[in-house]
Simulated scan of single mutants.
Amino acid sequence: MRELSRLLRLRHPIVQAPMAGGITTPELVAEVSRAGALGSIGAAYLAPPQIEALCAAVRARTTAPFAVNLFAPGAPEPSSPELAAGVAPVLDAFRAELGLPRGEDPPAVNGLFEAQLEAVLRCRPAVFSFTFGLLAPKHLRALRAASIVVIGTATTVEEAALLEEAGVDAISAQGAEAGAHRGTFAGAFEDALVGTMALVPQVVARVRVPVLAAGGIMDGRGVAAALALGAAGAQLGTAFLGCPEAGISPAYRAALRSDAARRTVVTRAFTGRPGRAIRNRFTDAFEGRTPPPFPEQHRRTLDLRAAAARQGRTDLMLLWAGQGAPLVREMPARELVETLAREMRERWETRETRPGGAG
């Protein structure tokens, strides 16, 4: 815990997960960091000028450290016209419901990571985090030369070992309970659906760098449990969706308050890459279907997802959420961080004063 705090200059061993797609607004990131935790910008879908503008907006609100997150570059998964043709009728039927024209083949976007990373290096945040794979040695050297702390994402012990060997400063161990994209990059994602309680102590036992526990952590009890498992801190994403600063729609917020939040599913439906979201008609429509891989399916569904969000159609919206979603609390980000820290301290104090406790 002390090592993580030293690395990241934190008062609390809490990291707000970097949720891409507009969720991590400058207000959310800045308020989390101002409270003594680590706010994170999910910048994976942003062009370099947008990354620089967001970093500037955060710095206009706080001098505290924050993180920027990108998707690690990698060779695209093989696709085929047959995969696109297989899902086109489903997508076009939903488009018709939303008043959209039939879909067209999306343009490919190549080489974006290099330009994004250059923007990050110009911004020089305190922390750079990444998911979906490993960074090239030249990328790590550039980040290290800029004195930026680097955090990689692992969903298995084997991935954690690869990240440590590559030279990251810390590892986010993503349990199966976590919302949004799975970070799996070595092996089948089905084999990497390991719960946080099982994954974290195994990763801690394998690597020497600090480990963050991610997945299913919603309150101070969860943070304390992560520390008890040997983690240096906890990374929370879904817990911050209830903050007014989070960039989600009223319909998304309503879904998190509903019984639907109790039913999440790991699906490729929206982007072509496995991720955990609230189950709805869209995810059900892709049961038994193989969509084109990421990022092709992501581009093919962009118009549909945007229209569904505008119309408040939660049956067709992408509603990333972890299995702890029913525990979301509606409170400002700064208050949530302070509440998490207080609950964590209370849990540790209770533990230490019990018979047989550390005290």
Rank of each mutant, 00 (worst) to 15 (best):
M218Q: 09
S5F: 05
M218L: 15
A205H: 00
Q323N: 01
Q202S: 15
G195P: 06
V149W: 08
T267Q: 13
T301P: 11
G324M: 02
L227C: 13
P78Q: 10
P49R: 14
T25R: 10
E77M: 15
G322K: 00
R342C: 11
A176C: 08
P101L: 14
R299T: 10
G133D: 11
V127K: 09
A64P: 12
S258V: 05
G183M: 03
L10Y: 02
T283R: 11
M1L: 10
L212K: 01
L304S: 13
S80Y: 05
L46M: 15
I151T: 00
R59A: 05
R6V: 10
L100I: 13
F130K: 06
F128M: 10
V87M: 15
V15G: 05
N69R: 05
R95M: 07
G42R: 00
R276G: 14
R144W: 11
A224P: 01
A251P: 11
L199A: 07
T155P: 09
L70F: 07
L46T: 04
L117G: 09
V90A: 12
A115N: 15
M317S: 07
R124Q: 10
L236T: 00
V194H: 04
T62E: 11
R262T: 03
V150C: 03
P326H: 11
E349C: 02
E31I: 01
S79G: 11
R257I: 03
A161E: 15
S40I: 06
A180R: 05
V266E: 03
L46A: 00
L7Y: 02
E104K: 15
E177F: 08
E177T: 01
E3S: 04
F185H: 08
A321P: 05
E335Q: 11
T238Y: 01
R2E: 08
E82V: 12
L83Q: 15
P101D: 12
Q297Y: 13
L28A: 01
S40M: 05
E330Q: 12
